[in-house]
Design a protein around this nucleic acid. Structure first.
Lengths: 210, 210
DNA sequence: GACATTATACCGACCAGTCGGTATACATCT
DNA sequence: AGATGTATACCGACTGGTCGGTATAATGTC
């Protein structure tokens, strides 16, 4: 995906946003300095404050940029091809597991990291992070709702609630991965999530009583 | 529980640690200043650096203090009384859900918040947070292992993995609660976790095929 | 030449950490 | 008992450096 073609944008602005994604995911929002973002982006400080009124404004813009990027990334993923909506949901989970590669800051979530720090101190960033997570969950929610319809599952939960739960598991898996410095523990949690959804949608009559 | 009697400790030191718990859970580690901790603790700055060599050292001490406090808190919880280990596990989950009350910073996890920020920049704090999470999970792991034995469940996962998964769900639930400013979404995720464990340990033959 | 963008120099606030010093408790020696 | 030494606890002014943000000049670009 060529990120430059998503929206026309001044070069310095996009370079600053790209820098923000990588630096903030590594060090968090507060520990990230404007000077470092400029250095990584190869841009002077004046450009930063030309494009973003404050550091907080950059935080909001970074969350929105993250939403755009991940939206396009998941929209292009192969799991949407399945006919059965349940296969699309499980395909999403498998896809999330498959991209747990490389170093920890490379597969963790920008908005999950940011919202932990600023949820009480900066309502604008908090709202932008919430919007990003909720928009992502909403796409999955559609498939879950369809799968619940198709497989006649209605027991005690909503499509929205289950979609948000998947995000909770992923965000929590990232925290464990950060604590242990290892992606394996995150993958194991995603496995549990997959098993849960499989059990939820498994028709009781066909359960193997071995 | 009288925290003062857990370990003898200079008054200023304990007041600083208590201040650290509440301030860091609200604003994160980086945004918390030594001056603010001193102000909240009602202690002079000199005392801070008498008890903690650096701010990072306070972070490590806060994680260890958190481990002590939560360890005692959960050890005293009522769910341990159940005879069936599975009831203890489900009792733990119910207890976790029951304490999701009050404002968000009051029920979220100090070490989960801290490790997100510093996992790359401060290995000492990262390790202390990992130790806190892992020790907590280990207590639950014992009950899970016993429940797996008792209920003859061995399918595709380990007691350790499931114990860590519960922590992932809880940590992720906290992130969603922070993003939405609402404890309800966290409780909903804990409900899903409970349902998952129930399904895992439900004997296939007795499943209700309604 | 008008306008958006980028670069450089700079400022005031703030922050982690230092330093000199006081207070208290408890030994040990005379 | 009183004097002396010593370790811990606590205090608050100070400092060197960093950070977010500003002012202004220089560039492109139509």
């Amino acid at each position: 995906m060529d990120t430059a073609t998503l929206h026309p944008m001044a070069a310095a602005r996009r370079k600053l946003l790209e820098a923000a994604l990588s630096v903030i995911r590594s060090k968090g929002f507060e520990a990230t300095t404007v000077d470092e973002l400029c250095a990584v982006a190869g841009v002077a400080k004046g450009s930063f404050f030309h494009h973003f009124k404050t550091k907080q404004a950059l935080g909001v813009a970074a969350a929105e940029y993250w939403s755009e990027l991940t939206g396009a990334f998941f929209a292009a993923a192969p799991y949407h091809r399945h006919d059965d909506p349940l296969d699309r949901v499980l395909g999403y989970i498998d896809f999330r597991k498959a991209i747990l590669t490389g170093k920890v800051p490379e597969f963790t979530c920008l908005v999950g990291t940011m919202v932990q720090e600023v949820y009480e101190t900066c309502p604008e960033i908090r709202a932008a992070c919430d919007a990003s997570i909720s928009a992502h969950a909403a796409k999955l929610e559609a498939d879950i709702a369809e799968a619940m319809e198709r497989h006649a599952v209605h027991a005690g939960f909503t499509a929205e609630g289950l979609a948000l739960h998947t995000q909770a598991v992923l965000q929590g898996a990232f925290i464990l991965a950060k604590a242990k410095g290892d992606a394996g523990v995150a993958a194991a949690s995603v496995d549990h999530l997959r098993r849960y959804i499989t059990l939820l949608f498994q028709p009781p009559k066909e359960r193997n009583p071995s």
